[in-house]
């Protein structure tokens, strides 16, 4: 076989492979990718950042309704992820900055804090933080404002493609919004969430937190990165550091793990001159599906409360 013929055939096979891959990916993008895909599509004027508590607990739609177009920069995006995916560090800071729409000056940035945002494995050194974060979804992504975002499919879509084509989620309890918010509904006509289920999930949450935190410690480098992130966000608008409400058992456990959390966060907030609001005192005003994350209606209620506090400020 001649070399040119061989290269021609090889190229043909590569084209078939790439064409098939991108067609399947496009088909999936057109329907449903996963919980995080929407966060990587377009730039935002205002943002919610943090871990899963703000991911479930703060609705950009409510902020959109509460503030007029001339009051804050829009669109509002929930750019929170979950434990291990978006702890504070230079990787998350860089991606947050890349998400901010050009020319934004009056953005509102809700920076959510929980112990999970500041953890590193107990045997890691402070210098390892960036290396650890580079392996996360945020570390892998170079383009965070592309629609359709094929980079996301290539680097972050972990399921086999047939799943995205044949089975798309029929579960309407957990709803993913275009604005990045993940809503956990109190139940639907087809799926009832009982008190017993909530109790079980809450118990499991606490057990898993206990398991996780045994091997983790609070990182000074992450606290510094958090401060840097707030300082960076201040250049684009107003920043509010927020601790979302959680069930008392979870709060007690976290306080035992990191008793100085509030004082440390408060001192950083004071240093960079932004407010720090701790809503954990109001824990009994809200409902949680697992003790740590708010149910949909509570999330809306909490976001409304947050919007009122922002207006008062």
């Amino acid at each position: 076989m001649k070399l040119s013929k061989f290269i021609f055939k090889l190229t043909g096979l590569l084209i078939i492979l790439l064409a098939l891959y991108f067609c399947c990916s496009y088909f999936i993008i057109d329907r449903y990718v996963d919980r995080y895909y929407h966060k990587f599509r377009y730039p935002a004027g205002s943002m919610v950042v943090g871990l899963s508590r703000s991911n479930f607990g703060i609705s950009p739609e409510v902020l959109d309704q509460e503030f007029g177009d001339d009051e804050i920069a829009k669109p509002v995006l929930n750019f929170s992820f979950e434990l291990y995916r978006s702890p504070y560090g230079s990787v998350y800071k860089k991606d947050i900055e890349n998400k901010i729409a050009e020319g934004t000056t009056n953005g509102v940035f809700i920076v959510s804090v929980s112990p999970g945002s500041f953890l590193i494995p107990i045997n890691s050194s402070e210098d390892d933080v960036d290396k650890l974060d580079e392996d996360t979804m945020l570390g892998k992504m170079d383009y965070v404002n592309v629609d359709p975002n094929f980079e996301y499919m290539v680097k972050c879509y972990a399921n086999p493609l047939y799943k995205g084509i044949v089975f798309w989620p029929k579960n309407d309890v957990v709803v993913t919004h275009d604005n990045g918010w993940i809503e956990f509904r109190e139940g639907t006509s087809t799926y009832e969430i009982t008190e017993k289920m909530v109790d079980k999930w809450s118990e499991e949450t606490l057990i898993s937190y206990k398991k996780i935190l045994v091997g983790q410690k609070i990182s000074i480098a992450r606290l510094k990165a958090f401060e840097d992130t707030v300082l960076m966000l201040k250049e684009y608008g107003k920043v509010y550091v927020v601790r979302t409400p959680v069930l008392k058992d979870v709060l007690d456990f976290e306080t035992e793990f990191w008793p100085e959390m509030n004082s440390q966060i408060d001192s950083i907030a004071n240093k960079v001159n932004v407010p720090y609001w701790d809503y954990t005192k109001d824990h009994s005003s809200y409902t949680y599906y697992d003790g740590s994350h708010l149910f949909s209606k509570s999330a809306e209620m909490f976001t409304r409360q947050l919007a009122m506090d922002i207006k008062k400020k």
Binding site: K155, A158, P160
Partner: peptide
């Protein structure tokens, strides 16, 4: 056979790297 193998690879592979 090539096309079937490519299709199987594209559709069934786990993209975990």
């Amino acid at each position: 056979l090539y096309v079937v193998c490519i299709a199987a690879m594209v559709l069934l592979a786990f993209n975990r790297q």
